[in-house]
Amino acid sequence: MKLHGLRIPVVVLSLLLGLSLFFGCQWLYQKYNYKQPLVASLSENKAVLSYEVDDKHDQLLIEVRMSTPNLMEDYKKLYTKLDAIMGKKPFILKLTDDRDSELIKAYYNSQYAIYQAISRGTYQEMAAVINKESIALGVESKVFIDRDNIYLQMKHNNHELNEIVPRNPSSSAAMAGGELFNAEGN
């Protein structure tokens, strides 16, 4: 069958082969350019207990559960390594944990001091309030600060809460993990 001197089956077959080649190359590029190094980096990191990668959206969502004595140090190392792997591909590194009701209460009771410290610079007062609230509920807590974030680690029994609060919420470097909870943990 011909249309204006072109054979339709040959044109359709050429189009299908071209599209297959294009999508195949794209798949190989993604697999070897960032997916394999990303999975290898997450798997090799001793602080990472588990991870999940969601690439169904414009930004890659990397959810990580960490267990570490120093959340700030290990989070920054992980973020820096992932940033080098991802290059210009946008991603979000989100922390997950296994909070219990006591951890949620301790964090909820500490939020006011955290956000007050961000706006007023009262970081020592914030640390004292977090320590007081934690002790009252039988929770062990650690607070770390750098120029971008406040890193809050809390442990109670076999549960832990890892929260990163951006010091400058509009900063793209402060993309981190978590949400605010109300007293009921919702």
Rank of each mutant, 00 (worst) to 15 (best):
Q111E: 08
E140Y: 05
L103W: 00
I114V: 11
E140A: 14
N157D: 15
A136G: 01
V165S: 10
E133Q: 12
L95I: 08
S119D: 13
K155L: 14
M126L: 04
S101L: 09
S171W: 02
S141H: 01
K132D: 11
L137R: 12
N149Q: 13
N149D: 15
S172L: 14
I92P: 08
K142R: 12
V165M: 02
I118T: 06
R147T: 15
M126C: 05
K142G: 02
L161E: 11
E160T: 14
N131A: 11
I114R: 00
A128T: 03
Q116V: 03
E140G: 05
D146I: 15
S171G: 08
Y151M: 08
D148H: 13
I135P: 07
P90N: 06
A127G: 08
I118M: 05
A128M: 04
L152E: 04
L161S: 15
F91H: 10
Y107R: 07
E163H: 11
S170V: 15
P90E: 08
L93M: 10
I130P: 07
Y123A: 03
V139C: 00
K105T: 08
Q124W: 09
N149F: 10
Y123E: 08
I104H: 02
S171D: 06
I118C: 03
N157L: 14
I130R: 02
G121M: 05
V139A: 06
I118L: 03
K132S: 14
H156R: 05
E125T: 13
P166C: 02
P166L: 03
D98K: 15
P169I: 10
Y151H: 12
S101W: 05
Q111F: 09
L103Q: 04
M126Q: 03
T122A: 07
G138F: 02
A113Y: 01
Q111D: 10
L95G: 07
M154C: 05
K94R: 14
G121E: 01
N168C: 00
G121R: 00
L93G: 12
Y123H: 04
L161R: 04
Q124G: 09
D97G: 10
Q124N: 15
